[in-house]
Design a protein around this nucleic acid. Sequence first.
DNA 1: GCATGATCATGC
DNA 2: GCATGATCATGC
Length: 487
Amino acid sequence: MLPSIILGSIFLIDYNELVGNYLKDVISVKFGTEEELVAFSKGAVGKTFGQLGKSDRLLNLGNKGGLGQFIEESYFGYEINSQARPDFEELGVELKVTPFKRNKNGSLSAKERLVLNIIDYMKEANTEFYSSSFWKKNEKLMLFFYEWIPDVNKEEYPITYTMLHRFSTSDLEVIKKDWETIVSKIRIGKAHEISEGDTNYLGACTKGATKESLRGQPFSNIKAMQRAYSLKQSYMTSLVRQNIYKEKLISFTNANELKSKTLDNILLDKFEPYMGQTDYEIAEKIGVNLNVKSKGFVPELISALLGIKGTKLEKIEEFSKANIQFKTIRLEPNGKPKEHMSFETIKFDELVNEEWENSFIRYRFAETKFLFVIFEYKETVLQNSIRKLYFKGVKLWNMPIETIEKEIKQLWVDLREKLEKSLEIKYIEKGGKLIESNNLPKSGFNGVAHIRPKARDGSDKVLLPDGRRITKQCYWLNNTYIKDILG
DNA sequence: GCATGATCATGC
DNA sequence: GCATGATCATGC
């Protein structure tokens, strides 16, 4: 007998008396308490999807949302609910089935953001947070985490962990402000300009079969992309690590502080007292015994200024959940960084096999919030004297969607084209050494980003799809673009 | 001073 | 050994 049939009979025995045989009604009163729901859900842990229902049903499901529907039907035995009501209506609990993955270094990450209900721009603009569709539907989430494993059929994915998720008081304050950010864009007739980078934990991601899934909005005639509320991938990764991996995260603020200030302002306020001081002065004040030139100095400075000295930045709860990543910027007296800003080494073999929509570099900029830690040199170099480096402040920044879709896409498209047919690599001998050069997009390409080498030395090369080898290259943001961002 | 390529230093 | 942040070197 299949497990689903066994489970089915259990609930008929338990609840038959109460509500008769009418399946749909049985379900709606099936769990009298959250504890019952939680206990029943735990029964799925350790089982694969294949073990929870008939596999032909699994195969017939589409990829998107398919596994969630499968659990609803096969494990809980009820019909799909696409209404504004939560799935377990009496308990006000919504069911969500969501994947995580194992990284090369052994850590775990959410595989994707958690997509929630679609935003009805017409209605949502007239509500406040506690009467919003978001809160009504997602206040309590029954989460089923399963492990996504590459090259394995979905029947074999195991359900690893189930939990009833309620937002902590701190998370709730951040999410309320995120919600306000999203809804205020609708209220000023800019639903079409909503972007995921605007918010910290709660996002508004596009949702629709095609890019042509447009909807009307109340305060503008411009049609806006259909969007759904979502919990960001970084937020979901934190949940995975805290609950499955039992990772401890450390917070630099609390719900009380978050009630009166935004996360961004709390951050800025923590750094404010140190503005104008030199790196050495700050190091002395906060008792950091690292050399200011050391690679670990800026992260050490950040955690110390946030009042959680010694905490690795990945372990800071707010950074982890909002995917905030720091970058140090050193400005010349003219306000421009001397150097461009480097990013990851390009994986050419992966790049030629990806689509723009799910490309590495698009995600990289769409889903990272940068904390720029800005220093500046105020004086020119003097003989026998080192230029003093002053702390100028911090800036939270994410790349605008328009820039991602225009300049970053241009770079990606050009890169692909070159890789497919026209990449030139030349070697010129100079002073007894071979200098390699190429025709990949240079710093004059479009004013935003370019490609340049970043390697250990001349022999640190990677294989290209066509079999040639090239010195490791990475993505760079132009220093002029950085200057404009800060401007 | 900028554009472009090369490579050092550190930390895991 | 490798990724990443940081910076140097050269030629125009």
